[in-house]
Simulated assay, not measured.
Amino acid sequence: MPLRAILTGLILIALLPLADAQPKAQYAQPKAQYKIVTASKAGTYIQIGRDLAKYVAEPAGVELEVLESKGSAENISRMRFEPGVKLALVQSDVYQAFLDEAKAGNPDAGNIIRPLRLIMPLYDEEIYFVARADSPLESIHEIRNKKIGVGPIGSGTALTSRTLYQLMFDEPIPAASAQYLTNEEALAQLTVEKSIDVAIIVAGQPAKLFSDMKPEARKYIKILKLDEKAMESARAMKTYFPATIRTSSYPSWLTEDVPTLTVKAYLVTYDYGLQSTVGHLVRFADSLCTNFDKLQANGHPKWKQVRLELPPLRQGWRYYAPMEKRLRSCIASQPAAPAYTSSPPPRTRPCTEQEMVLGICKR
């Protein structure tokens, strides 16, 4: 065979893999490796994080690792300093507490919070004040000077517990009264060891911790009620808002709806400027908007309470501009979605004449 023909054949063979690989190189873009910090494995945050990873991050070309944490306060610090953490779930009172500390001149708080940015508000998280079933306590404002499981150090629950106590009683919780325990530890010390009187737990309903309880749970625990007429409750409601823990969330053991307080959850990021990171987060924002219906249909029930909107923020709070721009553009192009309303509790009394006249009698 002539040398020229051999060389031509070898060149063609050498070019075949290149010709085959080139189209793949155009489309096989490596996924960004990001992390989101949430809360304990029995809480709502971690389920929200998993929903974001599956229905939002994956279609956006982001591999989102969902990490457990102690809660919001730790999440803010990890969002700021831990490599790879690009997203965090944070309670509104915790975020505001960092801003207040920064404004008061705390340099560490300012260094942590000032570069952080909000993506969007999510939903309200209910605050559970859990006591033993045989406890004489009935209402939230009766917990003064009781031994309280306030959540782990570094958690949003701990900050919420301390803030609520300060608001209600105009004094900090006594050091001897506060026990820094996980949710599971607090319930064990409440019901088994009986070394605390109340466990404060912050979680969006239905929370796995309570959903997994059997009917016998009502023999051991109860949830204290918010008495809106109490002076202490009025003080608390300057920062927190009234809410209801519904029997439909825990039908196996909760026998009646329980009025309580609530705090808002936010999705948070950092003020990134690196082009590749901005690009991935912008795609995440696009995916969040276009796949929002999947989150509401297939994700945790709390997604049904989330509205795809960017409301005005209080002073010192800022949205992440690149994601805000894309979300506002996408939201503007969407048909208006009806606001979520929970099913009303079953009526236990006859309708009044006034209710029938007003058309608000639901039998």
Rank of each mutant, 00 (worst) to 15 (best):
Q91Y: 15
E125L: 14
A109D: 05
G49T: 03
S92G: 11
R114W: 08
E65Q: 12
P115G: 12
E74W: 03
A73R: 11
R50N: 10
F129W: 11
L122M: 13
L67R: 11
L116G: 03
G61F: 02
I119L: 15
G71K: 07
L116K: 02
S92K: 12
P121Q: 09
S40I: 05
V66S: 03
S40V: 09
R80G: 02
S77Y: 15
K70Y: 15
K70T: 13
S72T: 07
A32M: 13
K54D: 10
I119F: 07
R114F: 12
K41W: 11
R114C: 02
S40M: 14
A57E: 01
E65P: 01
P83Y: 08
I112H: 03
G71V: 11
D124W: 13
D51H: 01
P30M: 08
F98Y: 10
F98V: 03
K54C: 04
Q29M: 10
V56A: 02
Y55T: 12
A102N: 08
E68G: 10
Q47R: 11
L52S: 02
L118R: 13
G110A: 12
R117M: 07
Q29N: 10
E65K: 14
S92D: 14
P59M: 00
V62G: 04
G71M: 09
I127P: 00
P121I: 11
A32N: 04
E126N: 15
A60G: 00
Y123F: 15
G71R: 07
P83I: 07
G61I: 04
Q33V: 11
K54A: 13
N111C: 07
L122R: 09
Y55E: 09
Y95Q: 01
Y55N: 04
Y27P: 00
E58V: 05
L118S: 08
S69P: 03
A102I: 06
Y45V: 07
I76T: 09
L99A: 12
E68D: 13
L99E: 06
A32Y: 04
L89E: 04
E101Y: 06
D100N: 04
A60E: 01
R117P: 06
E74F: 08
K70W: 14
L64G: 00
E82F: 09
A39E: 11
D108T: 14
V85W: 00
N75R: 09
L89T: 09
D51G: 02
D108M: 14
E58T: 05
K103C: 08
E68R: 06
I36A: 08
Y55Q: 04
